[in-house]
């Protein structure tokens, strides 16, 4: 049994907690949250050992690994403390608020050989995994353009402020929402190296942007467009998609449906010339416990297996998330 603790039982934390609670290889040894109401609920009904002070939790329950799901501004200091105590870390996205902080943690985790993972769950979505495979196989020829998009109804009118509306705490559409698709672009194509110009637009929020539009250039030389808006209520929930165009074909994929066009007979096995459509139902591996999407269980299971030494810790490492932090800072700087 892997002994796991959780710091932060908000929306993502509680979702991780339920998945961990149902995982046969995991013993949840402690939960820490600042809300008395949440703690009381979890200790009374879930029988969890709850704390309001994470340091106390760690010293008392001695976890092998900890899930960190607190507002981003606390990531750096908490993760650093955990690594210093040789605890494996799964943290929510985005990774850190500055590139310098992230760099330090990447180094620390590597030196101490600790399992490190960030919750960019799209990497565990079957369609996006398939996009990565097709792109890596070279079947699209010379890739010359991409479009990364994410739309959804998070802030759809003027409302009270929370940490998500404070840029110094990790709020805003760029950090919270756009980071998902930037991370996919980094992973599927190559890391963002510069921006030719970006627009951060406020639609309803007073202190942060609600939409991000940017022209990006990647390390590989490929360029493309980023278009993200979390104030778009024509979407029922977050919709993330990526389009990749090359000299031999084109892919359009979201989390449900992958459409790919191959121009000539040089297509991968299982495909044909012209348009091909594959659905998530064909590309998803069954999980043992389902909550909100297979990818959430799959990423937790992957982390647990990495801690047990059963898989290599290569997906969603601190390092890969650091590239996303860097892209975020590049986009911010390009608006100045």
């Amino acid at each position: 049994m892997v002994k796991i603790g959780l710091i932060g039982a908000g929306k993502m934390g509680i979702s991780h907690l339920a998945i961990l609670g149902a995982h046969p290889g995991v013993e949840v040894v402690g939960v820490c949250d600042t809300s008395k109401m949440v703690n009381d609920f979890l200790s009374k009904y879930g029988n969890f050992n709850c704390f309001t002070d994470y340091q106390k939790m760690i010293s008392q329950v001695k976890p092998d690994a900890v899930f960190v799901a607190v507002p981003t501004k606390f990531h750096y200091s908490i993760i650093k403390e955990l690594l210093e105590k040789n605890i494996h870390v799964f943290a929510e996205k985005p990774f850190c608020l500055t590139v310098a902080q992230g760099e330090e943690l990447v180094k620390m985790a590597a030196e101490r050989k600790l399992v490190n993972q960030i919750g960019y769950h799209n990497k565990f979505v079957g369609t996006f995994r398939e996009v990565k495979k097709i792109v890596a196989g070279g079947a699209l020829g010379n890739i010359y353009h991409f479009v990364g998009e994410a739309y959804g109804p998070v802030v759809t009118n003027k409302k009270q402020d929370t940490w998500r509306s404070d840029p110094s705490e990790g709020g805003g559409c760029l950090l919270d929402y756009a980071s998902h698709i930037i991370d996919l672009i980094n992973d599927i194509l190559s890391p963002v190296i510069s921006s030719k110009g970006s627009l951060l637009k406020s639609v309803y929020s007073s202190n942060v942007e609600d939409a991000v539009y940017s022209l990006l250039e990647l390390t590989s030389g490929v360029s493309g467009v980023l278009s993200v808006n979390w104030s778009d209520d024509t979407y029922r929930k977050m919709s993330t998609s990526i389009t990749v165009i090359g000299t031999k074909g084109k892919i359009i994929s979201d989390a449900n449906e992958l459409k790919v066009f191959f121009k000539d007979s040089d297509y991968p096995a299982g495909y044909s010339k012209g348009w091909n459509v594959k659905y998530i139902t064909d590309l998803t591996e069954e999980v043992d416990f389902y909550l909100r999407g297979e990818e959430y269980s799959a990423q937790v299971d992957y982390f647990v297996k990495a801690v047990e030494g059963k898989v290599r810790n290569t997906i969603n490492t601190f390092e890969s998330a650091w590239y996303t932090d860097r892209a975020i800072s590049i986009i911010k700087n390009s608006t100045k």
Binding site: I14, A18, I19, A22, L42, Y45, F48, F289, L291, R292
Partner: peptide, 15 residues
């Protein structure tokens, strides 16, 4: 299902 499965994972069976 989101609520059922959340409670199921948390083992909040009394609910």
């Amino acid at each position: 299902n989101v609520i059922t499965d959340l409670l199921l994972g948390l083992k909040a069976n009394e609910i």
